[in-house]
């Protein structure tokens, strides 16, 4: 029996056949397929996905960066009672308080940074998600897909701007959403939500100046992860039992 639902079985099969060892893993969740591709085969696999008639993913709809720092990590313990109560949630420093090496919830992610790509095949009317983990945490570099799908141009610029993922071979890798001269990559989990600097116009100096932020970071509703029975997928239970 195939591990995939009837809707995705044929796509999964042709993916496995065409991509071969270029396909690291293929996951199905909520009826959607995610193919994890190693960075070394990223462009090669993309070309196959676009050009092979049985796959024919003509359109790249979306590319986005992901920072897995702090994944599965809560701000308020819910499994047992604590003496600290709500203030612990309020005073928490947020998901950026650990470094990638000593994070408490060491899930099996191959890397901290990844990009997720949403592909669309109009010919076969189906979608596919690709993911590629950047090999290094300190200086994430991935090959650019801009030659395969031109639409990825601005999405890669966005991922570079917000996450600092560098795309090798991109013709014009400039910041896109943040201000001219912005420092840092704001969507990284260790970048504070309130930012690092504020901008204001200084009357005396007669120009715009940058100052460190004055406001305190604050968590209104603490992040909690509940793993009780309500959230366990009943179908997964059945298949396990």
């Amino acid at each position: 029996m195939s591990a995939f639902s009837a809707r995705n079985a044929s796509l999964a099969q042709s993916l496995q056949q065409t991509l071969g060892e270029r396909l690291e893993t293929l996951i199905e969740h909520r009826g959607q397929l995610t193919a994890v591709i190693p960075a070394a085969h990223w462009v090669e696999a993309a070309c196959l996905l676009r050009d092979r008639p049985e796959l024919a993913f003509e359109q790249l709809m979306d590319l986005c960066g992901v920072d897995y720092l702090g994944y599965g990590d809560d701000e308020w313990e819910t499994a047992e009672a604590t003496g600290a109560g709500f203030s612990r949630g309020v005073d928490a420093l947020g998901p950026g308080r650990f470094s990638w090496q000593d994070r408490p919830e060491a899930d099996d992610f191959p890397g901290r940074f990844a990009v997720s790509v949403q592909l669309l095949s109009q010919r076969h009317n189906r979608r596919l998600r690709l993911r590629c983990y950047a090999p290094s945490e300190d200086f994430p570099v991935l090959p650019s897909l801009v030659e395969v799908w031109n639409s990825v141009n601005w999405y890669e610029r966005e991922a570079f701007d917000l996450f600092g993922i560098v795309f090798e071979g991109h013709p014009d890798l400039r910041r896109i959403l943040t201000d001219y001269g912005f420092i840092g990559h704001p969507f990284r989990k260790d970048f504070p939500l309130i930012g690092n600097v504020t901008v204001r116009y200084d009357e005396d100096k007669g120009r715009v100046i940058y100052e460190p932020v004055e406001i305190e970071p604050r968590v209104g509703v603490p992040r909690v992860v509940r793993r009780d029975s309500r959230y366990i997928d009943p179908r997964r239970e059945e298949s396990a039992g």
Binding site: C64, Y71, G72, Q118, V221, V224, V225, R227, Y231
Partner: peptide
């Protein structure tokens, strides 16, 4: 489109 990653918490892990 909305690309949503959840890690099981009451807040999204990543929304794009």
């Amino acid at each position: 489109g909305c690309y949503l990653i959840s890690d099981g918490a009451n807040k999204p892990f990543r929304v794009h």
